[in-house]
Design a protein around this nucleic acid. Sequence first.
RNA 1: GGCCCCAUCGUCUAGCCUGGUCUAGGACACCUCCCUUUCACGGAGGUAACACGGGUUCGAAUCCCGUUGGGGUCACCA
Length: 563
Amino acid sequence: MTESAAGSAARQVVTRFAPSPSGHLHVGGARSALFCWAFAHGRGGRFILRIEDTDQKRSSDAASVGFLKDLAWLGIAWDEGPEYGGCGGGPNGPYFQSQRLDIYNREFERLIGSGHAYCAFDTPAELEAMRADAKARGVAYRYDRTRAVSLSKREVDALLAAGTPAVIRFRTPEGPITIRDEILGEATLPAGEVDDFVIRKADGFPTYHFAVVVDDALMGVTHVLRAQEHFNNTAKHMVLQDALGYPRPIYGHMPLIVNPDGSKMSKRDKDKVLRKAVKERGIATPPGGCVPAERWTRWLADSAVQLDLEEATALAAALDVTLPEINVDDFRRSGYLPEVLCNFLALNGWSPGQNIEKFDNAFLAERFDLKRVVKTPAKFDRVKLLSFNCDAVTGMAPERYVALSRAHGHAYHPAFMARLSDAQFDALAAASQPRSKTLEDLFRSNRFLALDDSEIRWSDAKAVKKHLIEGNPSGLDHVRALRGVLDGVAAPWTSAALEVAITAYAQSAAEGQLGKVAQPLRVAVSGGTVSPPIFDTLAILGRDSTLARIDRCVAAVTASATS
RNA sequence: GGCCCCAUCGUCUAGCCUGGUCUAGGACACCUCCCUUUCACGGAGGUAACACGGGUUCGAAUCCCGUUGGGGUCACCA
């Protein structure tokens, strides 16, 4: 490498997204990743993904993979990090903190050696008692190092040799600490605010504060962009950097994304919705046994207990409630487009100005800067997101819509896909695109197409009454007459041919009011009042199904009317 | 509660740094009307905000102070 290249490399912007793999990537995390990616890429820099799995109790490999998958789906590619789908690799690995313990241990030694850190043997119970005592006295709890540092080296070694559980604490220097932040400006924490925090846990793993500082330094991170909840932690990171002789990265703390009611977005929100519905309706046992009885009881009693995704989904379906989308994967399942999610997420906390709202990630990378990041938390407005998604879905090329819908169907509605031929699906997609807000709409509002003719039920009493029973002639009369008209339609059975025949019938029998015959027909073939345009609907169903459903409808409604 | 941060329509935000062009702009939502075979889309209008109180100034959404309100954080979680 030439000297000038080395010089420019040293100045290259490096950002990182460092999630802890407990649970799923939620939208707040996704936005952090997006901004980090955009900031680096807009400046010819590098974006690193690092997995902060230092909590052995909470981390899981499955969650790590889930994060990678979600990020990749969003189109947020990382230049360095775990290898997945063509992303990752790099010279600064490993990128899982659980694999970097020797590095941390080396740095712990340095800190102990230089007197910046010390071993402490307090038990969790003792610490708890000290916190309780401080609270009882109405004073802020700060760790008191007196006892720990009074131990001689020999005493410490003896305790360690005896296997006494020990943590390492950082000896925080006295004095106020001023944090400089590119988004929030400057803030000074008074002396004494930061106490001697733990940097190595009893299990030998580093705490977040320690690992994040070491890794950011070793990986050459120049800009730390993270959520505002980390703002106060920055003071800890700064004193650690000073003690370890690391350069200080530039900080930018981004506003949180919160629920519409202002509460923090949480994985528990789904359980919250379900619990509320269950309690409001006084449901005592899990409907359809969707949750094991013993778990059900514990779940109802303890708001900290969470249902699995499968259980929650089943229960939501049984209660007919919609679960709030929290995680990136939730939005994917719900049929949102990744580019729309990115666009919308970017608008929560940042805007390009000039009344521009619709843009892609390339534009974001080009225009994103810290100056335009707002300081206030954003309430996540799903309705506006839905509107954006609608615009994108209805506005995309039809071929793309068909392809995306197919993929979505195969991933989430295999049974539906199995019932329809390719030609039927193409026709359905063509009819659905203009009226779809998400990729899910096609499947959600056309279930009747994927049912066997014999499975259609006319159980919507209101619809049956209004569109089949009432009127003179009644809707059912029209349907009966239409049965003959349709039977007489010459092949091919196309939307256009059906339109000619049905419109002609409406002219002669309903004063040209298509609605008088379309709605009864719709109810007859679908069992409900909602479907794609009636001609398309019948064309997709085909002649045999259409006639069969009409016959069954006439028989069923006549029978129930006379009984 | 201590400490830190923040404050423009219901929501996301533009404007604030470099006071006047702001009778505060856009988007989503909402309301009205139109279109219409259901659903949805679309079209035309409309309602709607500078939290409050003091300053500074000829002039403040923009600068300063206070109040109130909101958020964050106080773990061997990250």
